[in-house]
Design a protein around this nucleic acid. Structure first.
Lengths: 178, 178
DNA sequence: GCACACATGTAAGTTGTTACATGATTAC
DNA sequence: GTAATCATGTAACAACTTACATGTGTGC
């Protein structure tokens, strides 16, 4: 149901076309709930069917503009207030960490270095977004709070990767062969 | 394919029964790759079929003990070394943050407080695990590195939640009504 | 004897991914 | 004209969840 509410939340901000929603998912929402066009378009059709959104216009190249309805707004508010979020985390990278001992020390180190490179790129991207001027309305503030969460998470991961790298590079790590 | 390698990795440590693997997933691996018994048992059957694991014994109450084969060990090492991890993050809580502006200030604050309560419990659990004595072999060290990653992530989240709470409780947040 | 944890499995439904498919407008 | 981006959709498959289903040993 999360995709449903991600769409409703985005439309609560302002009416958008399916394509604009797709782009929005590729950009900011990608870090919270990635979704592809093959998921978004059918879900929009279902939301329309359910009366939670309505089509308010048709643009160039067959684009369709959707707006949230009163029912939709109620629904997304109910979701925000009432439902316990699913807090399970799936992370292939974290999984790999458990099995780092299966690799040669230098292989383990290069895995972690690669990981550090990736997340340091993400941090740069987040910092770039942070620099962009925005309003100081509630929407912008909420966005900045979310962004701040991303930045802190990535920073913590980078610090951890440095510590992990120091450990797998230590003589103690290399020495043990069990 | 991650579940497959999670199972192979766990069996690379030592032979285990399906049920023991299930418990292992409920405990430490739950924070990296949650899986239920309805996923684990069929996947074990497939791994057996593929010759990546073998059944080495039968225990009480029909339990089956599996061990990783040479092929399996090769496969999990190839996965560890060669494949780019899927780094996409799905977080309902992060998603909700984007839409915090749809709630009344006190509702937004109580959401964040609730979230802080949850993660502070997880941190306590992680710290408890951290205190447990372990060996200093490679496996234990890799586990501790993974645990350290979890702790740092949760700590960063808690710090962020405090900052976010301060913001939604500020007069500037309450004042704006747009 | 009965509850609980152990132990394994299948089935139906939902969600998400990758691939297939098509057409319109803009920039060069 | 032709490549890129805009714009929407469907279909097959894989992964995951929830519910159904069954039987065994242990502790009280």
């Amino acid at each position: 149901m999360s995709l449903r509410y991600a769409l409703l939340g985005a439309l609560a901000d302002s009416p958008r076309t399916g394509y604009a929603l797709l782009k929005h998912f590729e950009q900011s929402l990608a870090y919270a709930w990635p979704a592809s066009h093959s998921q978004i378009y059918p879900e929009l059709a279902r939301l329309l069917e359910a009366g939670l959104i309505e089509q308010t216009g048709t643009g160039a190249r067959g684009s369709k503009t959707y707006a949230i309805t009163e029912d939709g707004l109620e629904d997304v508010r109910r979701w925000l207030r009432g439902t316990e979020p699913d807090r399970r985390v799936r992370s292939e990278a974290a999984l790999k960490t458990f099995f780092l001992w299966l690799l040669e020390p230098d292989e383990a180190a290069s895995q972690l270095e690669h990981e550090r490179g990736y997340w340091s790129g993400v941090l740069g991207e987040f910092r770039r977004i942070e620099e962009e001027p925005t309003g100081d309305d509630k929407k912008s503030r909420a966005f900045r709070i979310a962004l701040e969460g991303g930045i802190r998470t990535v920073e913590a991961r980078l610090e951890w990767l440095d510590a992990a790298l120091a450990e797998v590079r230590s003589p103690e790590w290399a020495a043990r062969d069990d």
